[in-house]
Design a protein around this nucleic acid. Structure first.
Length: 876
RNA sequence: GGGCGAUUAGCUCAGUUGGUUAGAGCACUUCGUUUACACCGAAGGGGUCUGAGGUUCGAAUCCUUAAUCGCCCACCA
């Protein structure tokens, strides 16, 4: 049989992508005979390109989907995309700008059509990239947050919440972006340090001589001042109770109010209150029933509340007002000042706090049951620490502003009567539409994603839902993997909507994956240009290599530093796996079907016993790790089994047998093949392509379609044998020590040394021979190995332990292997450390067997003493 | 300012309820191409587990404290 000596990831991967697509391997349908495992993808933005965080998140989901599928679950992984309101709108606006077109020229309808055109053209890119990653999603179930069904669901939810009184219209200071002409959410703004000036302005006290000095960076907003505030505990101002001050420039009397919000330490301790242009002032204004005077237009000019400053830009107005203050003698002084200003992440505009009408969802009632389901453990967070963040946020929940001044998105299903001003809120537009005007705003993008776990299955808030088999079967979903940053934006809200509309949790386990950072620990970001291009990494190293590496490196609950070069871990491992497969395939022909080890045969010797034990233990481990959401340990466990146990020892020993005992070798290879195939299955969830490829190379004539629908191996406890493993460890120790010693003497010509192996209980002749040959080969055929016979026999189970001893007394190094009588484990452990001591003494060439025994005796005594102590203690 | 977390080998990190000799990968040194693999094999060097106290027969692990760093949230006129 031919097997290429190099694994060509690129060719192989595309072959299997096509195969999986063509055979619809990952298509899911309702099958009540089977237990289901359903996952909805966190929908990537249509503007998105795959970044390293996506690789991690989607590989995590794929590992679980593939694993559960192999374990016999009906797995359904729903792919989809998010329309990403503002991000997409800005992208299209930019494109149009390049052509010299503004969205206002086009008008709303045509502009939205342009966005749809753009979506058709570029929206598929992220899917193509996900496909490249090898995700086992059911493509036939693809959803988009703006498609018909989902739009209907969004409207249903809005109308329902409105009718329940959860949705209300309110004033709110929004983050206004003058350039994009839209309100931004807090998450769409960032802070930038900026040098500014702090102006100290005198407000004369009415009916008194003095004045109160306040400090501000925004003098132009004083046009909208409706009070000044001081801290009630601030004795400097206690005489001002009930007093008024004159607002300079405007020449209006405004009250002095007392509010603990004011920081006594900052500035002068007195603060001007502009409720319409500052979020905190707004809160203060509400507490004290102040007037809200808006002095700005939507494009950042002074409006008609701004006296003769009307029409000026913010900066023009600032200059003019400062001059006026100067003239009137109200400007006390100016200081240099560095502070943070908020900036739009998208357009770079400085954010203007702006009071406007917005729609809100009242969150208090919705959040209570959402807290409960997490407290009760119905939904589990992994790692658990995120529950703290979750509780903190939900206990301090603020109402959700859901309106956005955009064109791309779900337009709010509210109509205003042109004549009466009456409000109409229904899923369908009013019949006499000509008398109504629809609200111009669209809904926050999260308003469609918060119902994602049920809307994707066709939920539409009608009687049909009860007949909707998919909804009934797949909801609640089982697993959600996402970034901790959106725990509140998305995860918490999905839990609320799920409980409200499905009367059930939306998912059972939530996995918060690591944040991927660059090698210097910085967050990956476009502006830093430090984000590796995953597509290039996939081309350079192979998709499996990247998948394996990222899972291997990302522990539960910690950040992961990543650079391209790391991917060598995965690539090298895959090469190793591939070559082990080559070795087995090359030797496969030597194997007859009858060459299987019977487990009771004498030939089922301790090498086989050992690998069986290690292997079954590995199955057990990975099962545990996957169930505990410790994916990196899952990867590590297999990595070390394949490399350290299977390749370095088992296959190497098999080679020894090939030259010494062909009969036994055939059986070992047969055993190795059996284990290897199972290992492929165990690795398939994380490295699907290469395992599929080797699987088919190994199973040329076998009926099985794809490794991804084969059975996942199950451990057999009976094979797990700690004693055998210990014996093998000692054997390894013996070999290693011998090699070490040999290396030291390798410079001295032909230094001869013997190894004396004193076999343990009930050893068959063959076993002794095998042990001898193994040793001889593994230490490179130098020196003699003397295997002594003994009355007791070796079988690897009755013998508890070997001790390794060295003797230099004749000038010829000798190594003795001796059994130590049955001891309890703890004692054996401690004795083992003396073997180490002995080794050290050996290197110093001052070893005396007797001394060693003395030391052992001494230690035994010590152990007994501490045991007695323990006994005493436990009796107390 | 509020909350969370970290500090272990040159680098990136494991170390599961306290218990043998603190592990792995990369990097480094030496040796080696014996027909799976140089994207390899063998061997080796390298750690007072951030500092200081404490609990314990025993602490990287638990407690107190200090220092340094990181993240999330809020944000000062």
């Amino acid at each position: 049989m031919q097997i290429p000596n190099k694994y060509e990831a690129k060719l192989v991967e595309e072959k299997w992508r096509e195969y999986w697509d063509k055979n619809k391997i990952y298509k899911s349908s309702v099958n009540i005979a089977k237990e289901k495992f359903s996952v909805v993808i966190p929908p990537p933005n249509i503007t998105g390109i795959l970044h390293i965080g996506h690789i991690l998140n989607n590989t995590i989901q794929d590992v679980y989907c593939r694993w559960k599928r192999m374990k016999g679950f009906e797995v359904c992984w729903v792919p989809g995309m998010d329309h990403a309101g503002i991000a997409t709108q800005i992208k299209v606006e930019e494109d149009l700008k390049k052509q010299g077109i503004s969205k206002y020229e086009l008008g709303r309808e045509k502009f939205v059509q342009k966005v749809w055109d753009w979506k058709e053209k570029y929206g598929v890119i992220i899917f193509q990239q996900l496909r490249k990653l090898g995700v086992s999603v059911d493509w036939s179930k693809e959803r988009f947050t703006l498609d018909k069904g989902l739009s209907k669901a969004v409207k249903e939810v809005f109308v329902d919440l409105y009718k329940k009184g959860y949705i209300y219209r309110g004033k709110r200071i929004v983050n206004w972006d003058n350039i994009s002409q839209t309100a931004l959410s807090d998450d769409e703004i960032s802070y930038k340090e900026q040098k500014d000036k702090l102006y100290y302005i005198k407000y004369p006290i009415v009916g008194e001589k003095g004045s109160v000095v306040i400090a501000t960076t925004r003098p132009e907003t004083m046009l909208g001042d409706t009070a000044i505030a001081v801290n009630p505990d601030d004795t400097r101002f206690s005489s001002l109770k009930g007093k008024y001050v004159i607002l300079p420039v405007v020449n209006k009397e405004i009250p002095v109010i007392f509010d603990s919000y004011v920081d006594m330490e900052f500035g002068t301790g007195a603060l001007k209150i502009t409720p319409a242009h500052d979020a905190n002032d707004y809160e203060v204004g509400k507490r004290h029933n102040l007037e809200f005077i808006n002095v700005l237009t939507k494009n950042g000019k002074i409006n008609n509340n701004g006296l003769d400053f009307e029409g000026l830009s913010i900066f023009e107005a600032r200059d003019k007002i400062l001059r006026r203050l100067q003239q009137e003698g109200h400007l006390e002084r100016i200081e240099e000042y560095t502070h943070n200003v908020s900036v739009s992440e998208r357009s770079g505009a400085i954010i203007e706090p702006y009071l406007s009408d917005q729609w809100f969802v009242s969150m208090k009632k919705l959040s209570e049951p959402a807290i409960k389901v997490v407290e009760e453990g119905k939904i589990k967070f992994h790692p658990e620490k995120w529950t703290k963040t979750y509780y903190y946020w939900l206990n301090n929940v603020r109402d959700w502003c859901i309106s956005r001044q955009l064109w791309w998105g779900h337009q709010i299903p509210i109509w205003y009567n042109k004549n009466t001003g009456e409000i109409y809120c229904e899923v369908e537009p009013p019949k006499d539409i000509e008398n109504w005007e629809q609200d111009q705003d669209v809904l926050d993008t999260w308003f469609s994603s918060w119902i994602w776990p049920f809307s994707v299955f066709g939920w539409n808030n009608s009687e049909n839902d009860k007949q909707n088999l998919e909804l009934k079967y797949y909801y609640p979903t089982d697993f959600l993997s996402t970034a901790p940053e959106i725990i509140f934006l998305w995860v918490a809200r999905m839990i609320m909507s799920g409980l409200e509309y499905m009367k059930d949790i939306p998912f059972k386990d939530v996995y918060f994956h690591s944040t991927v950072r660059d090698s210097k620990g910085r967050k990956m970001s476009k502006s830093l240009g430090n984000s590796p291009d995953p597509l290039k990494v996939m081309d350079d190293y192979g998709t499996d290599a990247l998948r394996f590496t990222i899972i291997y490196l990302a522990p539960l609950g910690a950040d992961v530093l990543f650079e391209d070069k790391n991917t060598e871990i995965g690539r090298n491992f895959i090469t190793k796996l591939w070559n082990a497969g080559r070795f087995l395939i090359m030797n496969k022909e030597k194997v007859n079907s009858s060459d299987e080890f019977g487990n009771d045969e004498p030939d089922y010797n301790f090498t086989e016993k050992w690998i069986d034990s290690r292997f079954n233990e590995t199955i057990k481990e990975i099962e545990f790790y996957l169930n505990s959401f410790r994916l990196n340990d899952y990867a590590k466990s297999l990595y070390s089994f394949v490399w350290s146990d299977f390749c370095d020892w088992y296959i190497e020993l098999t080679k020894v047998k090939i030259s010494t005992n062909p009969e036994s070798a055939r059986k070992s290879i047969s055993r190795a093949l059996d284990i290897y195939k199972k290992v492929l299955k165990m690795l398939h969830p994380v490295i699907p392509f290469v395992t599929e490829e080797i699987w088919h190379l190994l199973n040329e004539n076998v009926e099985e379609k794809s490794i991804s629908i084969s059975d996942f191996p199950v451990q057999n406890e009976n094979y797990i044998n700690p004693k055998t493993e210990k014996i093998f460890e000692t054997f390894k120790d013996l070999v290693t020590t011998t090699r070490t010693e040999r290396a030291k003497f390798s410079n001295i010509n032909n230094y001869k040394y013997n190894i004396i192996v004193k076999p343990l209980t009930s050893a068959s002749r063959e076993n002794i021979d095998q042990l001898r040959f193994s040793l001889k080969s593994l230490i490179n055929n130098k020196g003699d190995i003397i295997v002594e016979n003994s009355d007791s026999k070796f079988n690897g189970t009755d013998g508890e332990y070997f001790s390794v001893m060295f003797d230099f007394t004749n000038g010829i190094p000798q190594i003795k292997v001796e059994e130590i009588e049955n001891k309890n484990t703890r004692e054996i452990e401690s004795l083992k450390s003396y073997i180490q001591t002995l080794k050290m003494k050996l290197t110093n060439k001052i070893f005396l067997e007797k001394a060693a025994i003395d030391v052992i005796e001494k230690e035994k005594q010590k152990l007994n003493e501490s045991k007695e102590k323990l006994d005493k203690l436990s009796k107390m």
